[in-house]
């Protein structure tokens, strides 16, 4: 038994999902904190200051590489596990238990994850991508706050973002608890606490994310 085995068996692959997932959860906290700066309603001053730090600090930029690597592992390993698991029952049931024995979101992690990935591609190509491109070719950082105001004045963009937050929320309701269970921490003592914190996290974080485009659209912040 060695490290290679730890990450290559079915339990090991789940461990990869758990550890990368927990890192992505930490990332959400930071992202959410920076986003929440718009609610200071100071014309984007605080938000742009934080965005500038996040976009130029060397340590943050280094962690960003790790973030993409972890995201990549989470997506690829998730899909590998999903398709392997599906292939292990060639003849499917004529009648299935459905929601009687499990929650729909716990069975739909791959679907919810794919929706989040599609949303991410759209989201990154709107803000992160153009900003990094502009930084690299020497035109400097883009005015992210103004871009947001602009984008979130369109109803369809707001709707897509809110739907993205819904997918994230349901993914987290199961994912948060599941990550701890896979790490072996789902014991009698902590299980209820982990489930409670997980559901709270899955509601609060996506709600703050969703409030941003909604607030811009309804002119709660300028």
């Amino acid at each position: 038994m060695n490290w290679k085995q730890l990450f290559s068996t079915s339990v090991g692959k789940k461990l990869q999902m758990s550890l990368t997932g927990l890192f992505l959860i930490l990332f959400l906290v930071v992202h959410c904190y920076v986003n929440a700066q718009v609610f200071r309603n100071d014309g984007g001053k605080s938000f742009n200051a934080y965005a500038h730090f996040m976009g130029t600090d060397y340590i943050i930029r280094t962690i960003e590489i790790g973030l993409f690597a972890f995201l990549f592992i989470h997506v690829i390993q998730g899909l590998v596990l999903y398709f392997r698991n599906r292939s292990l029952r060639n003849v499917r049931y004529a009648v299935s238990a459905g929601n009687k024995t499990s929650h729909w979101y716990s069975r739909s992690m791959a679907l919810l994850g794919t929706l989040i990935l599609l949303f991410l591609i759209l989201h990154l190509s709107t803000f992160w991508g153009p900003n990094r491109y502009s930084q690299t070719i020497g035109n400097g950082e883009l005015p992210l706050y103004d871009m947001m105001k602009d984008d979130f004045s369109q109803l369809w963009v707001v709707i897509v973002y809110v739907l993205g937050c819904f997918a994230l929320s349901w993914h987290l309701v199961h994912g948060f608890y599941s990550a701890f269970q896979t790490l072996g921490l789902g014991t009698f003592r902590y299980k209820a606490a982990i489930k409670f914190v997980g559901v709270a996290f899955a509601i609060i974080i996506p709600l703050i994310f969703a409030l941003m485009p909604i607030s811009f659209y309804l002119n709660w912040i300028n």
């Binding site: 079915s10 339990v11 789940k14 392997r84 698991n85 292990l88 716990s106 269970q181 896979t182």
Partner: peptide, 16 residues
């Protein structure tokens, strides 16, 4: 793994 059982995604249908 060799026998071809899947991996656990903590759904909980087994326990139910």
């Amino acid at each position: 793994d060799k026998e071809g059982f899947g991996s656990c995604t903590n759904i909980g249908a087994c326990e139910a």
